[in-house]
Amino acid sequence: MIRVQREDFDTGKELDALTRDMTSVGGVTSFVGLVRDVAGAEKITSMTLEHYPGMTEKLLAEIEEEARRRWPLAAVLIIHRYGELKPGDRIVLVACASSHRDAAFDACRFLIDWLKTKAPFWKLEETSAGARWVDAKDSDDDATKKWDKSS
C-alpha cells in the first residue's frame, strides 16, 4: 500500500493496522526517515519536499510490486510526505510484514534504498546561509545498485 501525503502519520497506529487480523505474520520491520537539523556546517530551519504528482505514486507502486516479487511479504506500507517539514519531523515510513524476519528485513532495506534513488522527490533545505537544493549522493546510487539482480 502506497500513500503520498502532506500530513504526518502515527507510526505505531500504522504498524498495528498493517497486520491487524493477519495471524500468519511472524514479524514486521519498519524504517522511519526523519528530517535532520544539520546539513554540513549549517543548521537547517526547515525542509520542503517537492514531488511529481502522478509519477511518484506510480513509481512507489512499482517498487512495492518489485519487493513482492522478490520476497514473500504479507503486507507492505510506504508513506512518503511532501511539503514543508521541520527538523525532527517524519518524512517517510517503510514497513514490511512477513512470516519470517529475513524477508521482512531485506525487503524493508531494499524499498528504502530503491525509493531514495528512483522516487521523484526533491529536498529544498532552508538554512541560516539561505535555501539550497540537496544534492543526490553517489552512496545512495551504490546502495541501490547492490540490489541489482545482474550484479
Binding site: G33, L49, H51, Y52, G54, M55, K58, L59, H80, I91, V92, I112, L115, K116, T117, K118, A119, P120, F121, W122, K123, W133, V134, D135, A136, D140
Partner: peptide, 29 residues
C-alpha cells in the same frame, strides 16, 4: 527525463502529446 511518467534515456523517441518531465537526480527518502 521521464516521458509519460516513465524514466527514459536520451535516445527515447518522442510522440506528439507526450508529457515530458525534466528534473535533477532525486533526493527523497
Amino acid at each position: 527525463v521521464a516521458v509519460n511518467r516513465e524514466y527514459v534515456t536520451l535516445a527515447h523517441a518522442l510522440k506528439s502529446g507526450d508529457e515530458v518531465a525534466l528534473f535533477p537526480p532525486v533526493t527523497g527518502g
